[in-house]
């Protein structure tokens, strides 16, 4: 090899090897499988940690305050207007057939089964999954996670499990509030726009609901909560590349958790409809 840049390079000096398409695809597949494996491991660990101590109760309460109480304003505001807009959209169609009173039924079913869980899930994913990823990512790049491990603390117990548990508890509660506020929004819109009696709207909205509808909505929120919390934690604890990496992880946490929520919603709806048909 040449000692200085002025010396002639040997004849057999070759350009660095360019990997073939197959090699690139193979590497991509391996990396993807590894990511899924690590994510699954972290998710499983976040739950199995609950079986043994130490348990971080105060951290879980703090996270419940941050995720639950902190998300309340956006959930209330969006829930109210989603209910109202549902009434405006569906009410005008029902009015054409003289069935405007059915608006309460359809809004209630849509909010409880579908819109309540998915919209709340997406809103909380936007706010909390990104927040979790940036917080844990910042801790990782400033060696705070290593410091924690060096002092004998398991980061999955201290950082992941409280966030997952707090989201599992608070998202169903937030969804319930969102649905309730959505129905109020729908009721206000139906009174003002469709001239439907508030009592009629409310009665129909409640009567149409069955146990299977509530279970469908509830089971979805639990799955969505698990997705948004674990994806946020995984992205945060796998940051590469300093502060720029934290930004990337934050964006990815929102994108991945939102996509997973929407995709899983399809399968959960199908499953819930099948189970409702079979057992209820």
């Amino acid at each position: 090899m040449a000692d200085t840049p002025l010396q002639a390079a040997p004849q057999d000096a070759r350009a660095p090897e360019v990997p073939s398409v197959a090699e690139v695809l193979q590497d991509l597949a391996k990396t993807s499988v590894l990511k899924v494996q690590n994510y699954s491991k972290l998710s499983l660990q976040s739950i199995t940690n609950l079986a043994t101590g130490p348990r971080y109760v105060q951290d879980t309460l703090d996270q419940m305050d941050d995720i639950g109480v902190g998300s309340l304003p956006i959930v209330l505001l969006s829930g109210f207007f989603i209910g109202a807009v549902m009434v405006l959209q569906t009410g005008t169609q029902f009015e054409r057939f003289g069935q405007a009173s059915l608006t309460g039924d359809i809004v209630s079913l849509a909010l409880v089964r579908e819109l309540g869980p998915s919209i709340t899930g997406l809103l909380v994913a936007g706010r909390c999954s990104s927040g979790i990823a940036s917080e844990l990512g910042s801790m990782l790049v400033t060696e705070q996670v290593d410091a924690m491990r060096a002092m004998g603390t398991d980061p999955s117990r201290k950082l992941v499990t409280p966030r997952v548990l707090a989201t599992l508890i608070t998202l169903p509660l937030l969804t319930t509030i969102s649905v309730f506020v959505g129905l109020i929004g729908g009721m206000v819109a139906s009174v003002l726009s469709l001239r439907i009696n508030a009592t009629t709207f409310w009665e129909r909205a409640i009567k149409i609901l069955e146990f299977s509808d509530i279970m469908q909505g509830f089971s979805k929120t639990v799955i969505f909560a698990f997705i948004l919390a674990t994806v946020g934690c995984y992205q945060g604890l796998n940051v590469r590349g300093g502060t720029q990496g934290v930004g990337r992880a934050t964006t990815q946490a929102v994108v991945v958790s939102s996509v997973l929520i929407i995709v899983s919603d399809t399968f959960l709806t199908k499953l819930a409809l099948y189970l409702a048909d079979k057992f209820f």
């Binding site: 400033t142 060696e143 705070q144 290593d146 410091a147 491990r149 060096a150 002092m151 004998g152 603390t153």
Partner: peptide, 18 residues
């Protein structure tokens, strides 16, 4: 985790919990 309790680690930038 138990073994590390016998070791103190001073990180380059302190790594204090902010």
């Amino acid at each position: 985790l138990d073994a590390r309790r016998q070791i103190g680690f001073v990180f380059q930038e302190g790594a204090l919990f902010d």
